[in-house]
Simulated scan of single mutants.
Amino acid sequence: MAGSVWAALGLSLACISALSLISPSWFQSHTFSFGILTYCSRPRGDSRNQSCGTFRSLDDIPDLAWKVSAAILLGGWLLLAFNAVLLLSWALAPKGLCPRRAGGPTPGVQTVAVTVTTVGLPVFPISLASAFAKQACGASSVYHGGQCQLGWGYVTAILNAVLASFLPVIRWLRMTKVQGRIILFSGDTEQIILMPERSK
């Protein structure tokens, strides 16, 4: 049961992270919005009629800080997805194959994924000083959006990183508690079973 819960949480985090990465709403103005990998433009007052584009490679991304942030965040997402696949395979494996079913096989992978994502998120607003962002947002600069506001894609990425950072902590606390009980139980059992017989 615990394995299924961890697998579902891992898959959810990977899907939310992918959704935020493909979202064009990291920064948005009335007529333009852009994210890590996509951008959309629309006529003023007509939100239904919009055209969107995608940066298909790192070479297409217009700014160095943007490229660095995209590479880091894609790496974090790949680690989250890898962690989700490991958790899913661990949850579906037979019980005899994986005897330690309490905490999951890969708390370290998720911790690295969270660290990588946390590094990549503050790098992206540096690209607000690029010519692309200035054209979309007016007088934007590093960590200043100009006429652009923070969009739901960036907020979702931040919340996903926060939620993903809680899981290794919860898993570590649960593993510590379970291991503590096993050690006490195991120690008592060893004393009873391995106690030498006394000769009369």
Rank of each mutant, 00 (worst) to 15 (best):
M1V: 09
M1F: 08
S4I: 12
S4W: 06
V5E: 01
L11P: 01
C15T: 12
S17F: 11
S29T: 14
G45L: 05
G45N: 13
R48N: 15
R48K: 11
N49P: 01
I61S: 00
L64M: 07
L64V: 08
A65H: 03
A65F: 00
W66Y: 04
K67M: 00
A70N: 02
A70G: 04
I72Y: 01
L74P: 00
G75K: 00
L78M: 13
L79K: 01
L80C: 07
L80W: 03
F82A: 10
N83A: 03
A84S: 13
V85C: 09
V85D: 01
L87V: 02
W90H: 09
P94I: 15
P94G: 15
K95V: 13
G96K: 12
L97S: 13
C98I: 14
C98N: 09
P99V: 03
A102W: 08
P107G: 07
V116C: 07
T117Y: 00
P125E: 03
I126D: 03
G145F: 13
G145T: 04
Q147P: 03
G151Y: 10
A157L: 11
I170N: 05
R174C: 03
T176I: 02
G180A: 13
L184D: 06
G187V: 00
G187K: 04
Q191W: 04
M195C: 02
E197V: 05
R198K: 08
S199K: 08
